[in-house]
Design a protein around this nucleic acid. Structure first.
Length: 478
RNA sequence: GGCCCCGUCGUCCAGAGGCCCAGGACGCCGGCCUUUCAAGCCGGAAACGCCGGUUCGAAUCCGGUCGGGGCUGCCA
């Protein structure tokens, strides 16, 4: 049997990481088995579905490198891969089920249904006990699927093993709403049948709906696919990951300076592992190793700290030129202007040192703000900590020595400043930190000698003099 | 309430009766390196929810219990 899998997001919001993880597992599974990965848009909820969200979904998949073989935008043998284009098809299918006695119209109101559920509970029966076909048939309202009560629904879930649902626990669910639009159950199941989906790999939240889908598949003339229900992704509070956990949209991570390859690696670790030792691996290694039998049953908490660490690993592994290319837009965005050629050259020189210290691309601009602007902020805390008695003299001494250097480069700067340390009999912390703060405005920066080299002699000396002045100025004792 | 799922370090995963007084990773703690911060290196603390049972032997099998979660809509 050839593997045909799909991801079928609903464009009712920015795609969030839970769906992305499902997409990833489907994609890995398809690629591993040389199968077909399909992207379908389940936009049966016309009220909430928006085209901009569909764009966001597809952009997200492309960003991660999840390419699809059939589906929206790329097409395929099944016509439209957007359910809103197939409403007629679903309606026909629903009517056909009614004609065959497998479904029925129901014009009961929500209040009536609620009452039936309440009554069943009061009688200690299953809540859905009375949600069955009424004795008197009607020809209006929504269409419900009639769940056969003669035997349990059993199936083998690839990750959950043997599953069994008693028929009385499955309600006669609506397949066509009274406005003639299909529900998710009908549209999704019919599409899975008609598109010959072999495996349905999705979140565990749909496990309770699976008996409905199996029954529907058969009624529709298909063979139910193999099901694999993935463990849910939780927020730090142990609840299903949702908007209230903050940034759960993929877009937030894209903008937040995460590398797609790191994101991919990280998400593949949520409910799966390549082996017991390896945490970092390439997409091809994941494809080669991926299968559903290593998918875990337990929910996974989305651990931002581990993601950040992994991202840092990937950033450090980047070729320097690649890092520069990826980080330049972030720097320019934060500066609010394009860098000129000489600034670009300066940045490129120091970029490898920034690269080592960056976990998220968006951190980089802050590390080099001092390099491009004379209006960088001086951290007051860093200043008071480092500018102690006698510091002005040290800075003045440094200026003298730096002015005498023949060739302005990190080696000569280091030699000059080290001999100063020696002559003054002070340690690096006493002698160098004040320079760092004076020049970069912070006690945290890329390595000092390289930083001064890139900044240039004149700017360096100007900043040191400004610091000396500030130290001597009224209102700035010491 | 009903149906269903899950239960190994704080977190993610490994473990499919003896290889486990439980392994890897993040985080945490300590040390080394060091011009700051990172990175790197070395070391450390940290878990089989609980109770029974099966077995010569259980993290692994069974039962119960407790705990967490999902679903319960003419949303998906």
């Amino acid at each position: 049997m050839s593997v045909r899998v799909r991801i079928a997001p609903s464009p009712t919001g920015l795609i969030h990481v839970g769906n992305v993880r499902s997409a990833l597992f489907n994609w890995l599974f398809a690629r591993h088995h040389k199968g077909t990965f399909i992207v379908r848009i389940d936009d049966t909820d016309v009220e909430r579905s928006l085209r901009e969200y569909e764009v966001d979904i597809l952009e997200g998949f492309r960003w991660l490198g999840l390419d699809w073989d059939e589906g929206v935008e790329v097409g395929g043998p099944h016509g439209s891969y957007r359910q809103s284009d197939r409403f007629g098809r679903y309606r026909d299918a629903a009517h056909d089920l009614v004609d065959r006695g497998l479904a029925y119209y129901d014009d009961r109101t929500p209040e009536q249904l609620e009452e039936l559920r309440t009554r069943a509970q009061a009688e200690k029966r299953h809540p859905n006990f009375y949600i069955r076909q009424p004795a008197e048939p009607v020809r209006a309202g929504a269409i419900r699927f009639s769940v056969p009560q003669d035997r349990p629904i059993e199936f083998e879930d690839v990750v959950r093993d043997a599953m069994r649902f008693e028929p009385e626990t499955v309600d006669d669910f609506v397949i066509l709403r009274s406005d003639g639009l299909p529900t998710y159950h009908l549209a999704s199941t019919l599409d899975d049948v008609e598109y010959e989906i072999s495996h349905v790999i999705r979140g565990e939240d749909l496990l309770p709906s699976t008996p409905k889908h199996i029954l529907l598949s058969r009624a529709l003339g298909g063979t139910p696919p193999v099901y694999a229900h993935l463990p849910l992704l939780f927020g730090p509070d142990g609840k299903k990951l949702s908007k209230r956990h903050g940034d759960t949209s993929l877009a937030a991570y894209r903008r937040g300076g995460y590398l797609p390859e790191a994101m991919l690696n990280f998400m593949s670790l949520l409910g799966w592992s390549l082996d017991s030792e390896r945490t970092i691996f390439t997409r091809d290694e994941a494809i080669a190793a991926f299968d559903l039998d290593r998918v875990s049953k337990n929910p996974a908490i989305f651990d931002l700290e581990k993601l950040a660490w992994l991202n840092g690993e990937y950033i450090r592994a980047l070729a320097p030129a690649d890092f520069i290319e990826r980080v330049m837009p972030q720097v320019e965005a934060s500066l609010g202007r394009r860098l000129n050629d000489s600034e670009r050259a300066r940045f490129s020189t120091i970029a490898p040192l920034v690269q080592e210290r960056t976990k998220l691309l968006i951190e980089a601009p802050g590390q080099v703000a001092w390099l491009f602007s004379e209006h960088f902020d001086i951290d007051p805390e860093a200043w008071t900590k480092v500018m102690v008695e006698g510091t002005a003299d040290v800075l003045a001494d440094a200026v003298d020595r730096l002015e005498k250097i023949d060739i302005w480069e990190s080696e000569s700067i280091e030699a000059a400043l080290r001999s100063m340390l020696e002559d003054l009999a002070i340690n690096a912390r006493q002698g160098l930190q004040p320079l760092r703060v004076a020049v970069t405005g912070s006690s945290v920066s890329p390595p000092l000698f390289e930083s001064l080299a890139v900044l240039g002699r004149q700017r360096t000396i100007d900043r040191l003099r400004a610091a000396i002045e500030r130290l001597g100025a009224p209102g700035h004792p010491r």
